Computed example of a mutant assay.
Amino acid sequence: MHGRRRELVREPTVDEKAQTKQRVDKYCALNTHVMELRSNNVHTEDALSATRRLLELNTELHTVWNYRRQIFVHLDGWKSEGDRQALLEQELAFLLEIIMKNIKSYWMWNHRIWALSQLPSPSWDRELKLVAKLLAVDARNFHGWDYRRFVVSKVKEAAEDPAAVDVSEFAFTLEQINRDFANHSAWHNRSKLLPSVLQRCSEDERRKMMDDEVELIINAIYTDPEDQNAWLYHEWLLDIQPSREDKCALLRDKVSKIRELLEIEDDSKRPLIELVETLVALDGLEPGSVTDAERTECFDTLTRLKTLDAYHVNKYTDTESVLCKRWQ
């Protein structure tokens, strides 16, 4: 970590080296054994047990996960729905143990999705509760959010009112964002859900919802002006506006809010950048709408940015050149 002194690494003792070598030898022998079983197309309970022992040591062996799936479909119990249900319920319990060891394993999540897709009677509500607990531990884990979207899609397939599921998920993203405004995955999921939620709204309800979204963005920006998530969400909100007038109104409101923020955080780099970009966007949507005073404000802001952010001084100089040509 930056700013922390490097700690000296202690030389392992002879006994520790021997123990490490023993573990490595055991792992290599087990890996060789599993690969031999796979090469010989062995699809038995013993082979399934061997893959489990190996995956408990290393969850990143995607070849072994694939082999494990092959074993399952060749077992005698696979042909009976009752036996398959029992087999895969045991597999889900095993995967839960793996999740606790390595929540960010791509292959484990892929295997869980496969197991649930093969399960005769999956419990999607249970999976939804499971992933909610996981996100409570690691709210920004994108594996968990991807998996949650998969589970929600299955819940919607079985729901009498699929749109109501979207409304519920929309509320869930708000809970997560209020817990941590820097949760990019929650903002992203919210952007995916908002169009569906808006379809249920009247015109007045839509305007109220848009006002609420802007208020959420402003709260996030005031909490951490340099965090990019709320700014990006505002750009996405702009893209879904139904008319040019609505877009211009949203941009004008953004300019006003940035100016208010800069009265408090006058040396905050991201709001200054956003101010210039927003005024330029306004000029592009509605040529001539940006006043001479606002053009001067843009150039003054770029001058300030050169001082605050010397690393990107050439970028700001180039922006100045472009705007000089545009505004003569």
Rank of each mutant, 00 (worst) to 15 (best):
S121F: 08
A132N: 13
P120H: 01
S123L: 11
N141C: 14
A132M: 13
Q118M: 03
V137E: 15
D146W: 03
S123N: 15
L135E: 11
Q118D: 00
R140F: 08
F150V: 03
R140H: 15
Y147R: 03
V137G: 11
V137H: 07
S117R: 01
D138S: 12
L119S: 05
L134P: 04
F150H: 08
P122C: 02
W124E: 07
L130K: 05
A136P: 03
W145M: 15
A136T: 06
A136E: 14
D125P: 03
A139R: 10
A132S: 14
R140W: 07
A136M: 04
F142E: 14
K129V: 09
K133D: 12
S117E: 05
Y147G: 04
L128G: 06
K129P: 00
L134A: 06
L119M: 06
Q118C: 02
L119E: 01
A132E: 12
V151W: 05
S123M: 07
F142S: 12
A132V: 06
H143V: 09
L128K: 12
R140Q: 13
A136D: 15
E127Y: 06
R149V: 02
S123T: 08
Y147A: 04
G144N: 12
W145S: 14
L116S: 02
K133R: 09
K129E: 15
S121R: 15
K129R: 15
A139F: 06
V137Y: 09
D125M: 07
K129D: 14
A136G: 11
D125I: 09
